[in-house]
Design a binder for these strands. Structure first.
Lengths: 226, 226
DNA sequence: CATCGCCTTCATAAGTCCTTCACAAACGCC
DNA sequence: GGCGTTTGTGAAGGACTTATGAAGGCGATG
């Protein structure tokens, strides 16, 4: 079952799109502004986002930028501005397709399907990641070490999942904060240490000698990839 | 190799920015006023433009508008006016990021890189560099000589990465300090020697006969390019 | 409205690494 | 070849980073 997040400030359009997408077999989540969209994207982890660029307040382009800091999920953009420049900018920012207003709901559904087919084929972000004998299952929100389950809080899970998406790559505390909180504020950065400590306590055989969560002195942390 | 066009009417700033960007491996073209910027943009087709909004004569915003009539290339804006309005206008006009004066050159380089990474899905500045049988992997913060990993501190890593960005080119101690500390203060310059010594100990087969980290007497060091 | 769980903060301890210094070695110019 | 200058080296102190346990505060839950 696929989830689509629809972001538009006009309730009429949201309803219309929701109906058609549900008709087509999608689960639909909606948001009416930028912050709401980001929150919803974070929480529901949709398979695709339909985003109206003409949002009040936060610019639609900013929404995509923020989105891109924590997820590569595909985006289909709706815009009233027909200038080619807008389209290009939208596409450069990683949008996967666009529609100009007024658009037909049927076409929207077709585009959503097409984009999902494309990104699925390309193999988007893996939903289950294995690092050493650690298994991180995003849809089930579960982590196992070998055969035994490990109980994590949601923040701990998000942090681990962010690292696991690119094993071996070093993340700064700021990047990790963005991954779990959406914003990076220097003052909170030491809190990452605490989460890492708790994660280590829960999943390292010997927390004093981390095998998975490796400290990179002066830089940040990374998840061992071998 | 990526080209960046820098537009500023203050020669001092232009020079500073040029140095840092070249250090980062970019080809730099400069212009000091709006018309010059547009001409240079047309001719050299840079991959990105760094534009000071406080230009005399033609307004910086007009420059962006004119630019947009013939190219969607990314723009990073520098402004002394801190009002949020300016920022938004700048972004609405298709600028991709902004900095407020005074700004740190290091941050400018970081932003330029970030914007290029974003707009150019392929990712630009090589994240993994190979020099001889040395491999320097930035995201993983790892260095290998042939197949064997070499453990470096973060300063050593930064120093080596800076040299590796332009193999064969000689760097003064001051330039190396800037690369690893962001500022160059004469007093610290001898510390570079210590770092070079430690680097050699860790990655030269015979530290007495350096193969990679070559001393250029009276000038500085360079990384052998073959 | 009370309880519970969780995130952040703080203080302190432990650890890592950067710089410095002094002296030896190497270099280059004359 | 000699001499001043530049570079190499090892050790050590101290600054900075990270680890850790405990406690406060906040929101969720019932």
């Amino acid at each position: 079952m696929r989830t689509v997040l629809v972001v538009d400030d006009e309730l009429k359009i949201t309803r219309l799109v929701r109906d058609y997408l549900e008709q087509a077999g999608f689960v639909v989540v909606t948001a009416s502004d930028g912050p709401g969209a980001l929150a919803a994207a974070r929480q529901t982890k949709p398979d695709l986002i339909v985003l109206d660029l003409g949002l009040p307040g936060l610019d639609g382009l900013d929404v995509i930028r923020s989105l891109r800091t924590f997820s590569p999920m595909p985006v289909v953009v709706i815009t009233a501005r027909t200038e080619e420049a807008d389209r290009i900018v939208g596409l450069e920012l990683g949008a996967d397709d666009y529609l100009t207003k007024p658009f037909s709901p049927k076409e929207l559904v077709a585009r959503v399907r097409a984009v999902l087919r494309r990104t699925d084929a390309a193999g988007l972000a893996p939903q289950v990641m294995v690092v050493g004998d650690l298994t991180i299952d995003i849809p089930r929100h579960e982590v196992r070490r070998g055969p035994v389950g490990v109980e994590l809080t949601s923040t701990e899970f998000d942090l681990l999942a962010a690292l696991a998406r690119q094993p071996g790559r070093v993340f700064t505390r700021g990047q990790m904060l963005e991954a779990i909180r959406g914003v990076s504020f220097p003052s909170y950065e030491r809190a990452i240490d605490a989460h890492v400590k708790n994660l280590r306590r829960k999943l390292e055989p010997d927390p004093r000698r981390p095998r998975y969560l490796i400290t990179v002195h002066g830089v940040g942390y990374k998840l061992a990839d071998a």
